[in-house]
C-alpha cells in the first residue's frame, strides 16, 4: 500500500484554499525565524524585532521548531529574563 493511498483520499476530499494559505503563511514565518537566527543566537524579543513577527507568535513558532529539533535553547541573558535560541546543527 505504501505511497498509494493518498491518491484514494484525493478523489474524496479537496483541500480548502484557506488551509493552503495558512500553510504558506507558516512556511514564510518559519523562513523568517530561521533567517533571523542564521547569524547567531537571539532571544524572543530580539527575534521579534528582527522579523517584525509579534512576540507571542515568535514564542509559538520557536517552541514548535524546538520541539522538532530545528532550534535549540541556549543560556539565559545577563538579566536572567530571556533564553537565547539558536538553529540546531542538524
Amino acid at each position: 500500500m505504501a505511497g498509494k493511498t493518498i491518491e484514494i483520499i484525493k478523489t474524496k476530499r479537496k483541500v480548502p484554499e484557506a488551509l493552503r494559505q495558512r500553510h504558506k503563511e507558516y512556511l514564510g514565518l518559519r523562513k523568517k525565524i530561521r533567517e533571523a537566527l542564521a547569524d547567531g543566537e537571539a532571544t524572543i524579543p530580539q527575534i521579534s524585532q528582527k522579523t517584525g513577527i509579534p512576540a507571542d507568535q515568535v514564542v509559538f513558532l520557536v517552541m514548535t521548531l524546538r520541539k522538532y529539533d530545528e532550534i535549540v535553547a541556549g543560556d539565559m541573558d545577563d538579566m536572567d529574563e530571556y533564553y537565547y535560541y539558536k538553529l540546531s546543527e542538524k
Binding site: 500500500m1 505504501a2 505511497g3 498509494k4 493511498t5 493518498i6 484514494i8 483520499i9 484525493k10 476530499r13 483541500v15 488551509l19 493552503r20 500553510h23
Partner: peptide
C-alpha cells in the same frame, strides 16, 4: 481536517502503516 494531502507522511512510513483509504 488540516491535511494538505501532500503524501509526505505515506512516503516516509517504512512499515507502510499510513492508510488514507
Amino acid at each position: 481536517e488540516n491535511c494538505i494531502l501532500c503524501g509526505a507522511c505515506e512516503k516516509a512510513c517504512v512499515p507502510g502503516a499510513i492508510d488514507f483509504s
